[in-house]
Write a protein that binds this DNA or RNA. Structure first.
Lengths: 160, 160
DNA sequence: CCCCAATTGTTTGTGTACCAATAAATTGAT
DNA sequence: ATCAATTTATTGGTACACAAACAATTGGGG
């Protein structure tokens, strides 16, 4: 009986293939594949970065401020292509962790400047080193050309 | 003066390149690239699916139930590789939209079975058709081989 | 100089996403 | 048959992500 069920399943799959009926499984959609992989890779980074008490998104923000200390809130959001309200909440947490500091912009009272704290400056390069190692471990699983194509497609998709 | 500033920027980039100092910009990390592209593609789907009043994630759940109507909650979560608590909240919304129905499993009182409503059955193939069109528009931007490599890498990353 | 439109960052509300803790039901070992 | 361990779905808590509404500020046209 169990065997019969399996045969029926197989037959159904054959019928679908022969009639060219498209699968209903969501795993065929690009968007679904992307989100599944993104979540997986995100958790992979998260597992390592948690030793510093931060999340991947918080790490990206720290890196961007590290690249240009004291940049404007607006510039930061733009460079991360991140919604302002999302950045506000991430900065709230980073400020609570004493890793980042908001200061008033002397030239425009609407604007904020974002700085790393001393503590963050001491830790960030170690964090970055860790993240590079994680990246390396991912890349090792593919040929250089394969991964280059992958990144090129990602790059092209990220330009609107 | 502005010109001087640009020259300094350029010089700094040269120094970084010559000393092999790695960039601090987060856009070099695989995880960041993935999340940026995922968000972009997600918004792209969202814009179209919103005409049905649903989100991409809700669409994936509907598709999976469409593929196998009346499957167990647990199976559904597993096939979507989704945390159970996430699925609970998505099913709550889909039930409120009258697109999905939870029923008790007669064979195990801990378990739930998930069904599409009549309304959902009438709409889902149109939604799927739309999603396929969106996918097609993305794929058109690349050569077949290029995109095949991209999907192969995604596939491999989603395992383990 | 004044007013109105645009800009800046925050708040609020909704929707994922996941972990830990929970309650209910089932299973298995004795 | 009974009790402990396991399984199942939900709840509660935290963290993104984004749109819309908001307050403070700036800037330009009259």
């Amino acid at each position: 009986m169990e065997n019969t069920h399996q045969k029926i399943e197989l037959l159904m799959r054959c019928i679908k293939a022969l009639t060219n009926e498209t699968s209903r499984n969501p795993s065929k959609y690009v968007c679904y594949k992307l989100s599944r992989v993104m979540r997986k890779v995100h958790r992979y980074y998260e597992g390592s970065l948690s030793q510093y008490g931060i999340t991947p998104s918080q790490f990206y923000v720290l890196s961007a401020v590290w690249e240009k200390d004291g940049l404007k809130f607006k510039e930061l959001a733009k460079s991360l292509e991140m919604d302002g309200s999302t950045l506000t909440s991430i900065l709230d947490r980073l400020e609570r962790l004493d890793l980042v500091e908001r200061r008033n912009d002397p030239e425009d009272r609407r604007s904020l400047l974002v700085f790393l704290t001393e503590q963050a400056k001491q830790q960030i390069s170690e964090m970055a080193h860790l993240a590079e190692k994680l990246d390396q471990e991912i890349k090792e699983r593919f040929t250089e050309e394969e991964f280059a194509t992958f990144e090129r497609v990602l790059e092209k998709l990220s330009l609107d």
